[in-house]
Nucleic acid binder design. Structure first.
Lengths: 124, 124
DNA sequence: GTGCCTGTTCAGTAAACAGTAAACATTTTG
DNA sequence: CAAAATGTTTACTGTTTACTGAACAGGCAC
């Protein structure tokens, strides 16, 4: 099994932007940042942008928002809310799933979806 | 069923600190912050402290670190890592569990723990 | 060869964050 | 009543974050 290359956010961004045929200035304009800044980001000379800009970038390039956000060292914005809505049970769950495979995580998600369908609880 | 009072971080902190008999100055010293700042925090005149200070406070007062951290509008520090380790599967799971009851979340956690025991995957 | 693209570099900045020091008024203790 | 301890207010401060503007070098088009 080939090891995944641990590319940086900047490297990934440049690769995909060029692939899609955007010039640096053009793409910067679409995202709503200065070309200067985009250049620095792609060279990893500065930290990746905020979560919302990363999201716009991923969307413009047809990439996974969650993956790019993680690569940027940030969190997609709905996740903190979800955690805070159940401030002990969700963290406990997260710690319990640490290290599980993608398949195992998918099975848990399916269980969760099933629970949703069964009603929030038994409704009498 | 009585509705839980939506106390602020500051109100909670003051309540528990006084309950344990710490003076403001004494407690500030234990936490490693200035009395000035602690006073402001307890009056909600400023944002709650960083996650690590919130953690110290909760520990000193025998309260739940996760709950207090959430109340402070922050995230316990290990959670972002856990999410980024599986940057699509874990966010997907989180969105799927949103709105589940504490009991349902507990059942999922137990499933997860069982999966851990069964080995990370079948190991041939 | 001068215009016009390309990306890059340097220097700087506005706003937010996470606090602190000093002085103060009030209550408690000896 | 004097001393000590309580919490509060005002006015800052240093640091980090997330960027921007101006100027510049190199390639390509005509």
């Amino acid at each position: 099994m080939a090891k995944k290359k641990a590319k940086t956010f900047g490297q990934f961004l440049r690769e995909k932007r060029v692939e899609k045929g955007f010039s640096l200035r053009k793409f910067a304009e679409l995202v709503g940042i200065s070309p200067t800044y985009l250049s620095q980001v792609e060279q990893d000379n500065v930290d990746p942008p905020t979560a919302d800009r990363v999201k716009r970038m991923a969307e413009l390039l047809g990439e996974s928002v969650d993956e790019w956000t993680a690569l940027a060292g940030r969190l997609t914005e709905d996740l903190p809310e979800i955690i805070r809505e159940a401030p002990t049970a969700v963290p406990d769950l997260l710690r319990a799933v640490r290290g599980l495979t993608t398949d195992q995580l998918r099975r848990l998600r399916e269980d969760a979806e099933r629970m949703q369908k069964e009603g929030t609880d038994e409704e009498k």
